[in-house]
Design a protein around this nucleic acid. Structure first.
Lengths: 225, 225
DNA sequence: ACCTGAACACCGTTCAAGT
DNA sequence: ACCTGAACACCGTTCAAGT
């Protein structure tokens, strides 16, 4: 057919098809040939819209970042930066949990992905607005991303094996019930995420006090809590 | 040559060659054919020692876990669980930083990898020994892994681009100096890791007090801090 | 048991040719 | 500008054959 008068493909259509292929069959199932077949075109056609396959996967990852709710950062002030961070983390995690197979691509940093950058921008802006020094605001965005993407990677891929004989007590003296982790994996992951998130926010709150409160060497009259 | 009287390959030799190939040229550079060529054999020979390529990469990842220092957990007691966790986190991160390209494989959970399990076992055992309830000890091992592997993934792969025009202020109002992050990426990552680790440990210490200290409803005489 | 070459069913990407 | 088929240089894995 050569060139049709109305384009058969668009970046959006390609990303949509790639996303559902990733969701239903995993990252490895996405080949340029299979993806093209789903779209009713031949493999090389994709290269009219994306430079290479990696760019397609980046776009799929970015479509997930778009789903992350950022509204809690709009009215953020010094009083509720912690609550905003908490709600954002839950929304972020939920978005990743809905598309677990693309997480490895997303975990490699915001890079050139526009929506990923928008997320980083929103967190940074809100933390600065709440009184954090810019250098700390940058770090908070990074470390929250470490924890959230790390948990999404660890949860939904690998995991333990549901086979008692796989874990010899002689090798792992404390993991007597490790095989139970297989069935309880999801529960463990959720618990670990909750505990970790709370610890992270509690810890940041302690550091925030150091910044917000004049140090005792400067203001001696102030009593310490 | 068919079968030589002394085997040309061994699992160890294969893992060693694969590791240095991963380190020097990245994950994508490892194909069964290239790996076999480095070892002076033909591609299919590898299948006499590993079931498939994924098992080889798992072994490469596990060789990194072996490098993680666990000695700090041997004499752990209630007083220094926090310090042990801190030192272990630094050692873990250093091991990943030395072999950044294999981190995506390692980040998918301990799965069937023996050394990965040994790490999980040591953390769990030490935390229980320090007074944490078993359910919490499991979660601590998981959440620390989230943070550490997440930071290793985010740091050494992707990242920002050193190009001012890549970040239009209209799109990202707060990321005016985002392109500076490219050159300062490593510094930002280290700072974020330090801040995050401290927050995590501070936060866990607060939670530890809740477990170690009888609640005020039980022991009314005790004053609150 | 452990290695080989041949073979199968795939890949990502380039490119000239078509409209 | 946008699609095509052919082609290039690869893949992971299986398997019969060799010693």
């Amino acid at each position: 057919m050569a060139r049709p008068r109305k384009p058969l493909l668009s970046r959006d259509r390609i990303v949509e098809a790639a996303s559902s292929l990733v969701d239903s069959e995993g990252l490895d199932a996405v080949s340029t040939r299979r993806l093209a077949a789903v779209l009713g075109v031949s493999g090389p056609s994709l290269y009219n819209h994306f430079r290479n396959k990696d760019e397609i996967l980046d776009a799929v990852a970015d479509a997930v970042s778009v789903q992350v709710d950022l509204s809690m950062f709009e009215a953020s002030d010094a009083r509720d930066w912690r609550e905003a961070l908490h709600d954002w983390a839950l929304s972020y995690r939920a978005a990743l949990a809905a598309h677990p197979h693309i997480v490895p691509v997303l975990a490699r940093g915001p890079g050139r992905r526009p929506a990923g950058l928008r997320v980083a921008d929103a967190v940074f802006g809100a933390m600065v607005g709440a009184g954090w020094p810019p250098a700390q605001a940058t770090r908070i965005g990074a470390l929250m991303r470490y924890f959230i993407t790390g948990s999404a990677l660890g949860s939904f891929a690998g995991g333990f094996v549901d086979d008692e004989s796989a874990y010899d007590p002689a090798d792992y003296p404390h993991l007597g019930q490790a095989h139970l982790l297989a069935e309880r994996g999801r529960e463990v992951d959720e618990g670990a995420f909750e505990v970790g998130l709370r610890a992270l926010l509690d810890g940041l709150a302690l550091q925030y006090e150091e910044y917000a409160r004049p140090t005792e060497t400067v203001r001696r009259g102030r009593k310490r809590p």
